[in-house]
Design a protein around this nucleic acid. Structure first.
Lengths: 208, 208
DNA sequence: TCAAAAATGGAGTGGCAACTACAAAAACCG
DNA sequence: CGGTTTTTGTAGTTGCCACTCCATTTTTGA
């Protein structure tokens, strides 16, 4: 197999300034996409919000779907970055409630607009952009893994029975998060996620 | 208050043939929107699928968002029409499992493409079409109500404790459905919904 | 210091897709 | 019947928005 500077033209190199501009674009795009939906977020608006010109946007991203992929990566990092520290020390039901409050608090802080920064992208991308769908699937899997490891930690600390199926529980809890956020977004009322997470936690309490 | 044939121009009257055409459009739109997403579903494709011309489409619908509203109504009826009979006779855990199988079976029959006909619309519409968001919220509320009444029936039959909070349980279960379908759609694998619903049911079993 | 590379400005443009205009056919009904 | 309303066909048109072009400025690194 050839090194192929033809098939894969040398990856562009960016300066620190360039990377900062790129970051500004991704952040503006993330915000606008969250607040308006993927399709309603127009590149022109993203340009204004990031204070960049069209040529800059296309200097850093091949096209809109490449930008969307970068947004998925970014939102994944934001999300996991917030959840990781809590889930890492998941050794008690108290910590689990902290985790719930983190989720409820974050959607309340945006008045339920946008819902989940990842989940709200699924409807608009899953059937029209296979690459984006795969990226979202990866993000969810990593999120699920963090949860599973956390539950295993709780189990190892004797907070949960030894025979629990941490994998299935993690999937179920992630579903409660996603479904709860989806309902809260639709209703503009955070009580749905809170209720859904409370039920998940209540179930775990029966597994002590 | 005037009768106002000005502000509200006389509602159009349709013949049977007209209604049939309208129905054909709504069904084609529903299918294409489910399979491609709201935005990727182009009116031209819907016209071809329904075998109607542009003038027909605009004869029956003001614009695309009016058509989308009709699709939401239609999918709500399809959905509730399928769930109502099962939830009406919700008197045992066996029936609850039938309900789970109904959901899992329906997404499997479409190979996880599209996810929930209602839930998958939220991401694309909630932040750009307030009317559609409200319509989706109503649909979810009715779905939730059916679930709550079903759970109350189970309670009244002695299958669940007298002190359960059927309202909260219904919200939680609906969240599990939505989140599970969202994950299954993203992963193209029905096991997520199944697992999420199994957890909900397992929790209910602890409330006997 | 100076050539090469990277970053930026900003005015296009081309295609697509929602929507319209206008007229003809079909169905309804008094 | 015959006038009216409903339904349908065809052929636009219009605006938006993703994307391009090319020139200029800034930064880099030897």
């Amino acid at each position: 197999m050839a090194i192929s500077s033809i098939e894969r033209p040398t990856a562009r190199t960016f300066t620190a300034k360039g990377l900062a501009t790129r970051e500004r674009i991704v952040e503006a795009a993330s915000t606008l996409i969250l607040e308006n939906g993927v399709d309603a977020a127009k590149l022109e608006d993203i340009q204004s919000a990031a204070r960049v010109s069209a040529s800059q946007l296309y200097h850093y991203f091949e096209d809109k779907s490449a930008l969307i992929l970068a947004v998925i990566d970014h939102q994944t990092e934001v999300m996991l970055g917030a959840h990781r520290p809590v889930l890492k020390r998941l050794d008690s039901f108290g910590t689990l409630e902290e985790w719930r409050d983190l989720i409820v608090g974050s959607i309340e802080s945006q008045h339920c607009v946008g819902g989940c920064p990842l989940g709200s992208l699924v409807g608009g991308l899953a059937e029209s952009d296979p690459i984006a769908r795969a990226a979202l699937a990866d993000s969810f899997s990593e999120w699920e893994r963090l949860l599973r490891v956390g539950l295993e930690t709780m189990r190892d600390h004797g907070e949960l029975r030894a025979d629990i199926d941490a994998g299935s529980l993690a999937v179920s809890m992630l579903a409660s998060v996603q479904g709860g956020l989806l309902l809260s977004q639709t209703r503009r009322d955070s009580s749905a996620v809170r209720t859904a997470l409370d039920m998940s936690i209540a179930y775990l309490r029966t597994l002590r």
